[in-house]
Amino acid sequence: MTAPAAGSPAQTAVVLAVSSNAEYSFSKPNRPSIRLLTGRGVEGDVHAGVTVKHRSRVARDPSQPNLRQVHLMHDELHTELRAEGFSVAAGQLGENITTTGLDVLGLPTGTRLHIGAEAVVEVTGLRNPCAQIDGFEDGLLSRLVGRDEDGNIVRRGGIMGVVLADGDVLPGDPIRVELPAGPHSPLQPV
């Protein structure tokens, strides 16, 4: 089963930018390409690995499986934030893959994203933005984590996934969405 891309029927989901960093830092520099490694994440990225690599999660339990191997964020969020006066661009909020034409936050858990010729990423959940975002630009956290009209927490900082199939990912690569068998489970923070 395949989901349509966000927007008009002619719009297709594509990779806008790819980013990685071998050192712990909030932002990740854009790259000409990245390589995804099955069960590990982005080759050479500080967050790649079978077990958790995010510092807060390592502190709690370093043996946890790494459900945050790849961070994806939609460029439509960047556009919205820029319209509100924030200075954000691809990779600056820590994502590995910046997409366009795909409602990443609307995907269910277990969705498989076929990216480029070979890579496959399975969506595990939502990124849970932390206070470091306000260190990047004051007030940004409140734009990425808020509450809906019913008081429920809404997280807009992108999604996380694990790599199911190796592959190189480049800007301009198409993204094909394969939904899991229903019923679908909404994304939860991982």
Rank of each mutant, 00 (worst) to 15 (best):
G116T: 04
A117Y: 01
E118T: 14
A119N: 09
V120E: 02
V120H: 04
V120C: 00
E122W: 03
E122F: 01
G125K: 09
G125C: 11
G125F: 02
G125P: 10
L126A: 06
N128S: 13
P129A: 08
P129S: 06
P129G: 06
C130W: 00
C130T: 07
A131M: 03
Q132L: 00
Q132N: 00
I133A: 13
D134L: 08
E137M: 14
E137L: 11
G139L: 07
L140T: 05
L141R: 10
L141A: 05
S142P: 00
S142R: 14
R143M: 06
R143A: 04
L144K: 00
L144W: 02
L144Y: 03
G146Y: 04
G146F: 11
D148W: 05
D150M: 10
G151V: 04
N152A: 08
N152V: 11
N152D: 12
N152S: 04
I153G: 01
R156Q: 13
R156C: 08
G157A: 15
G157Q: 04
I159L: 08
M160V: 00
M160F: 07
M160K: 03
G161L: 12
G161E: 04
V162M: 14
V162T: 12
V162W: 09
V162N: 11
V163M: 04
L164N: 05
L164P: 05
A165C: 09
A165W: 02
A165K: 15
A165Q: 15
A165Y: 02
A165N: 14
D166W: 04
D166L: 05
G167K: 01
G167L: 03
G167V: 10
G167Y: 03
D168G: 03
V169F: 00
V169M: 02
V169S: 07
P171C: 12
G172R: 09
D173Q: 06
D173K: 00
D173M: 05
D173C: 10
P174V: 14
P174Q: 12
I175M: 02
I175Y: 00
I175F: 06
I175L: 01
I175W: 10
R176I: 09
V177S: 03
V177A: 08
V177E: 07
E178Q: 15
E178A: 10
L179C: 04
L179N: 10
P180T: 12
P180V: 07
G182R: 14
P183T: 14
P183W: 15
H184T: 09
H184N: 11
S185M: 10
S185D: 15
P186S: 13
L187M: 11
L187Q: 13
L187K: 05
Q188R: 12
P189K: 12
P189S: 09
